[in-house]
Amino acid sequence: MSKKRRIRRILKWSLITFSALLVILFCFGLWFKSLLPPKQIGLENSLAQHLPYLSENKVTKRGKILAVVTSTDKMGASEKSTGYELTELARAYYVFEANGFEVDIASPLGGKPPVIIDDDDMGAYDYAFLNDSIAQYKTSHTIAVENIDPSEYQAVFFAGGKGAMFDFPDNKAIQAIVREYYQSNKVVGAVCHGPAALVNVLLDNNRPLLEDKMVSGFTNEEELLLIPDAEAIFPFLLQDKLTAQGAHVNEGTMYLKKISHDTNLITGQNPWSTWELAETMIKQLGYTPKYREVTAEENAVRILSVYHQQGSQKARELIKKMMVTEHKEVNRVLIASHSIIAAMKGDIGQFYDIIGLVSYAKKQVSS
């Protein structure tokens, strides 16, 4: 066989193989998409007054909580946009309001801060927040933290968003609020990148607030998976900074709920920790949180947690119990997103396991 014929043959079979792979990937993509539910019609029109948690059995006013969000819209010298995470603010805001606390919203610069909205993470409460005229007025007219009177509030909550890494750590007004609240036994809460507000805070004894504290925050693993050059973009990695200041970082599974509760300091690892963190703050304030029906997203987080701790079979049993016996909704999109995370990490076994959970959950819908 001549050299030219061999080359043509190699090219031919390479093209056939490549085409076959494209067909397989296309078919897999169609199948994967078929596992996911269609977007819920009308979800974006959700209103607070139509959500029983917010409209029924209203709690008598108990005081005020301050929520603080970032004013930063770019990640350092990069052109990557940032802001506060809407879901983290919205969910905490409504937990506080439902439990009798008026919420004021502040930011380092005041005014209208930048916001990050991830459509895949949005639920009824998040859209209700966008449609809530009072909440939107507060987010468009945030109070500059330097103008805050700390005595007006029983607690402070720092929402995440990568911008917090730039304008929370060295803000003197934020440091003063955190120091005063912690030392006077008021509640300090922070979620995801929100714990950046806690770094560089010195107590009156000149020791770091974080020294020997159990805390959670966005982990290095979570940060670097999505932003491989994070160390060059951010002034520090949050987990590294927390550790350097003497904190004991309570690290959970990537992108799943994890809360740390150290006396009056309550922190959460990521956006999926927000519901529990806010309700833990209510408990620390001395109240039993108002009953709230667990969301489909929270059910998905619980299933994924069981999978990581006990394996696929136990996760499937929980799916069946939730969906068939208890008639609860499960967010299949969130579970599916974790299969993509597994693929990004190169864990093919976990990738197929989690896709199997999505497929199993879909089957329960029609059972």
Rank of each mutant, 00 (worst) to 15 (best):
Q313A: 09
E276W: 04
K314I: 09
T263N: 15
G286P: 03
I303M: 00
L256F: 02
T267D: 05
E279A: 10
Q313F: 12
S312C: 13
N270E: 11
Q284H: 15
A315H: 00
Y291N: 13
W275C: 06
K290Y: 07
G268T: 06
A296P: 00
N299F: 02
I303F: 00
Q309W: 10
S260E: 11
L277S: 10
T267G: 06
K257I: 05
K314C: 08
N299P: 02
I282D: 04
K321E: 14
N299Q: 14
E279I: 08
T280H: 04
T288E: 15
S312I: 15
Q309K: 12
A315W: 02
L277F: 12
A278G: 03
Q310G: 06
D262A: 07
V301A: 05
L304E: 01
V294E: 03
N299D: 10
Q313Y: 12
L256Q: 00
S273T: 13
E298S: 01
V301I: 15
E297W: 03
R316W: 05
H308V: 09
T253Q: 11
K321L: 09
L265S: 06
E276K: 05
R302M: 10
K314S: 14
G286M: 11
T274I: 07
Q313M: 12
E317W: 04
N264W: 09
T295L: 04
E279V: 11
I319E: 04
T253G: 03
N264R: 09
A278P: 00
K258E: 12
R316K: 15
T280C: 13
I259Q: 00
I259E: 00
E317I: 10
A278W: 00
G286V: 13
N264F: 14
Q313V: 13
M281I: 15
E293R: 03
M281W: 05
T267W: 04
W272I: 07
G268K: 02
Q284C: 08
V294W: 01
Y307C: 04
L277V: 10
I282S: 04
T274K: 00
T288Q: 12
G286I: 11
E317M: 07
R302I: 07
N270P: 05
Q309P: 07
R292S: 11
K258F: 10
S273L: 08
K283R: 14
L318S: 08
Y255G: 01
S312E: 15
T267C: 06
Y255W: 13
Y287F: 15
V306F: 03
T295Q: 02
K321G: 12
